[in-house]
Each structure stands twice: as C-alpha cells, then as structure tokens.
Amino acid sequence: MSRLASFAHARPGNAMRVYILHRFLQMLVVIFGVVTVTFFAVRLVPGDPARLMEPPGTPESVLKITRQQLGTDKSIPDQYVAFVKDLARGDLGTSFRGGRQVTEVVLNALPNTFALGIASMLVATTISFAVGVGASLRPNGWFDRLTLFFSTVAQSTPSFWLGVVLTLYFAIELDWFPAVGMHGPASFVLPTSTLAIALMPLLIRAVRQGFIETMGEGFVRAARARGISDRRIISIHVTKVGAVPLVTLIGLQAGYVLGGAVVIESIFNWPGVGNLALQALQQRDFPLIQGTVVVIAVVFTVVNFLVDLTYAALDPRVKY
C-alpha cells in the first residue's frame, strides 16, 4: 500500500490517465489492423468459400445462393465495408452449421479457453520462476546444466505429440485422468500439463537470463555491501527489477496459450475457441472460421494492453 501511495505521490494521476488513454487508442488501432489482416488473410489464397462449403458437384445456381448468403458475391472492398460495419455492432455473421450467431458461439467457448489458459500459465509461471531462479544462482552449475538440458529437450518436443503421449499413458494405460472433455478438476490435469510444459522452456530461460543479468547489476552489489541478506536481495531487489520485463513475456505467452489452445483443445476435445476454430475448419464453416480468428486476435491484443499497463504500474521508471 505504501508503495502505491508513494507512487501516486511521485506522479500526478493525470499523467497516468493520459497514458492509459493513449495506449487504449493505440490498442484500438492495432485491433483494427488485426481485424483487417484477418479479413484479407482469409481471402489471400485463391479459392471459393462457397464451393468449399457445399459438397462437390453442387450446381452453380445453388452456389450462387450460398455466395449471396456469405456475401462473397460482392467485390472485396464492398465485403470489407460490410464486414467492418457488422463487426462494429458485434455481429460476426451466422454460423453455416446450425444457424447460430457466431458471436454467441465464440463467446460461449471463450471462458473454457481462459480457464485452461490461466491454469496453464499459473502452473508454468510458478515452476519456471522457481527453476529459473535456482539455475541463475550458479550459472553453469549442475542444476543450471540440468535445467538447460531439459528446457532444450522440452523445446524440441511438439506439444501435440506430448498431449497424445500423456493421454496414452495417464488416461489409457493408468486411467488416472479423463482423456477428453472438461468435466471437473481432474480433466484439467492433462491439458494443463501439456500446455504448461510447452510454455515452460522459454519462461525458464528468460527468468534465468533475466536474473543472471540483474544479479550482475551494480545495485545488487551495493545492496550486498550494505549487508542485506541474499534471500531478501533476490526476493525483493532482484525480483522487482528482473521480473518486470518478464511480465511482458508472460503477456506475450498469452498469444502462445491462445494459439496452443487450438492444438491442445483439439487433442483433449476441450470445449474452447481453439477447438471451435478447428471444427469450423473441418466443417468448412466460413463465417465461424473468420469469427474465431477475429475474436482470438482481439483477445490477444487486449491482453497485451493490460500487460503494458501492469508493466507501467510495476516499474516507476516507465515514462508515460
């Protein structure tokens, strides 16, 4: 509390508000860009969505109606204007299978993805901090070598394979945890482990590197010269300085989680947006594909905006 108080004292709250507003506007620009990129990416490769969605051999007259429903009969600029207009109203179109609103379908799946993502990030961050700090205490020591070895191996391991292997062993062979679905806490174990293991190598290396660098700073030596205990120096001085850049990395990993969710959710049949995107893909549900991609990209951008604000709040040196 006292830190916050002195923080407010050091800087008029006005500057902070201006900064938040500035970053918010910036975020809107990025979201607009991301939405635009999605729109054009979906149309980048030549191909006719209508033809994809209907079974082969569908007569041209039916395809024409499908195109009208999709809106792909219009020119690209017209489609874009219509797309942006609908989006502004929160309308991502209608799913082709089942006729439900895409917005509604995606928003229903989003909390499940969040639950998996947050659980994985908590696990990954906790373990990575403990291991990374441990390794940084003696660079090149046995623990450090072991850590680097395992993180290199983990980094070389495809998470979709790991998910399959974990299922094979812990769900089928041992029958400890359910193999698929989201039913109760036990069903979190395997998908969370898979995603966390995929997140950890990078985090561990970042924590280790960051702490080694921070521990080499003059202020650490000066604090030690004052007789501050090593435990305190590491847990307060080094962590406060060394962890701030890691906040950004964790934020960026949110992107990894969202992307990784596609894979992990499909392996464990998790009812999240990633799985939704893949199902849409298999069913060639064009509006749903576009909708999930837009929502995930927007969520990612918002997460990064929040991370930036956290960063500013954590480090008093950040100039607004």
Binding site: V42, V45, Q290, A297
Partner: peptide
C-alpha cells in the same frame, strides 16, 4: 500488428480456403 496474431490462426485463416 502481425505479432498480435497467433500463428496457428494465421495458418488456419490462410490455408482453410
């Protein structure tokens, strides 16, 4: 802007059609 775009989604968006 591109970094604000999880890769798999990009691939899905492009390769889907």
């Amino acid at each position: 802007i591109q970094l604000a775009f999880p890769f798999v989604l990009f691939a899905i968006a492009v390769l889907a059609v």
